[in-house]
Write a protein that binds this DNA or RNA. Sequence first.
DNA 1: AATTGTGAACCTCTTCACAGCT
DNA 2: AGCTGTGAAGAGGTTCACAATT
Lengths: 207, 207
Amino acid sequence: MKKISDSTIRRLSKYYRTLTGLIESGVDTISSNEIANINSITSAQVRKDLSFFGTFGKRGLGYNTEQLREQIAKILGLKRNWNVAMVGFGNIGRALINYMEFKKQGFHISAIFDNDPMKVGQEVESIKINSIDDAADIVREQNIEIVIIAVPGKHAQATIDHFIKCGVHAFLNFAPVAVKVPDDVLVKNENMSIELEALSFFLTNVK
Amino acid sequence: MKKISDSTIRRLSKYYRTLTGLIESGVDTISSNEIANINSITSAQVRKDLSFFGTFGKRGLGYNTEQLREQIAKILGLKRNWNVAMVGFGNIGRALINYMEFKKQGFHISAIFDNDPMKVGQEVESIKINSIDDAADIVREQNIEIVIIAVPGKHAQATIDHFIKCGVHAFLNFAPVAVKVPDDVLVKNENMSIELEALSFFLTNVK
DNA sequence: AATTGTGAACCTCTTCACAGCT
DNA sequence: AGCTGTGAAGAGGTTCACAATT
């Protein structure tokens, strides 16, 4: 597949949510210009993003909201469930398990890992807490394809390395450290500090 | 000030954390090339990013870790505390209060707002929960400059509008919706769904 | 008449490459 | 000799503008 930019993928996610909202409001047709306005970008950008994947609109009319949402779901790989594991059941881990908003979207946390012997064996929201030593077996048995890293920064690299050996290629990393992975592995970082610091920079230098 | 790109600011945050780690490990001098390797980018990128703000290195030698960290802290506006309010004390809100990692970095949550009368008046971690009706007064009294939006998506825009009226210019938005704000206001979005969907796209199309 | 899909133009960000310092 | 700082070149992403279509 032709290289698609990260920005395009992020915007597709946004269009997807925009369309979900529109469908809920009973809108059944929309123009690239309206999608653009909602997201504060240009209509050419919307059309160009979509054009990488096909032609989904009708000239003179616009896009059918349901169909376009369906197409974007297909592009993003959201027409199926993903089995997700979470590593590290400390503050962030606990918070994420509680906030299971994303379960609705097909991301199911089916296993938790922690290396605290006190926690191993317990169950949270009917998800078992396992020892990291059992990772290889559990990843295979449960067909886990995405791993959320919620361990302290100093353990993030080793943890990711371990799960790569178990065959995992996709990570959502909450540890605020840079990690190195091979080309066939993707790590996405979720790091509130970066956003807060961007706000701090803005208030200090720009506003 | 000359327009600085968002990417540059994000990378400065990363260099800042890289330097913090290096200092903890007792490293006192580092080259742009080493900073680059740690963050999987090029050394020219590191030097260019820094060059927008001044010249911090010594040719032939590299950078002093403590001094560079200090300079970046100054650039990002981290040499002071920021008073932060959180709006919405549901699942995400509770999680964030528990996860006060960022308190260490000078971001202090000093007020919580919720419009559930049952919650108003309670205290969490010695932070009072207030009615949103009192926002104007509290923002002024506590000198709140950053507001974290942890309300349901359908209320995000109205909540942000309200706090803009109270004089707030910087928001960290956890609601998964696009919001519109004037030019002198910055909203940073923290949206796990976008990252998970990027992983889903990668696993589906790229890997 | 309205709106898409897209090549071309434009702009921004990244990398190169080297003069200039230490 | 080694590494920074930076103008120039290159790559990549965004917007323009218009032919094609409904």
